[in-house]
């Protein structure tokens, strides 16, 4: 439900970066979003055109790259895959794990049209 406000935050950042680079248009935006970020990629895709209307990024392609859930165990030091509601160590079953991937909400990369660059 907060995807529209997230899009607005995204566009503020994107437009700032585009201006810093003297770009006239943003062509592609790459986000990296983990399943534990609390963001639904489909909703973000739907909200994007509404938020982007009238900005430098109006025509940009929004690409959302999902990231996997990975944990590192404090007991056995193994690094294993996990699922959003089962973050236990895949090797020894301990719950003393640390999430190393899966809650990202990152603006990773932009493609810009920059005149005379």
């Amino acid at each position: 439900m907060h995807e529209l406000s997230l899009c607005q935050a995204l566009l503020d950042q994107v437009e700032q970066i585009a201006r810093d680079h003297g770009a006239t248009r943003v062509d592609r935006i790459l986000l990296r979003v983990g399943p534990l970020a609390g963001v639904e990629p489909m909703l973000l895709q739907h909200a994007y055109p509404l938020a982007a209307a009238g900005t430098l990024a109006e025509a940009a392609e929004l690409v959302i790259e999902p990231s996997g859930v990975r944990v590192r165990c404090s007991d056995c030091d193994a690094e294993t895959d996990a699922t959003p509601n089962r973050l236990l160590c895949g090797a020894c079953g301990s719950f003393k794990t640390r999430l190393i991937s899966g809650d990202e909400l990152l603006l990773a990369n932009l493609e810009l049209t920059i005149p005379d660059d």
């Binding site: 997230l6 935050a9 995204l10 503020d12 950042q13 970066i17 810093d20 680079h21 003297g22 770009a23 062509d27 592609r28 986000l31 909400l105 990152l106 603006l107 990773a108 990369n109 932009l110 493609e111 810009l112 049209t113 920059i114 660059d117």
Partner: peptide
């Protein structure tokens, strides 16, 4: 910002950002 950018195949500038989306918040 002032240097040459990496180019995609169709000539756009590619910029690596790696910023948290909620950084303003």
């Amino acid at each position: 910002a002032d240097g040459k950018h990496a180019k995609t195949e169709d000539g756009r500038a590619a910029v690596t950002v790696l910023q948290a989306l909620l950084s303003e918040n």
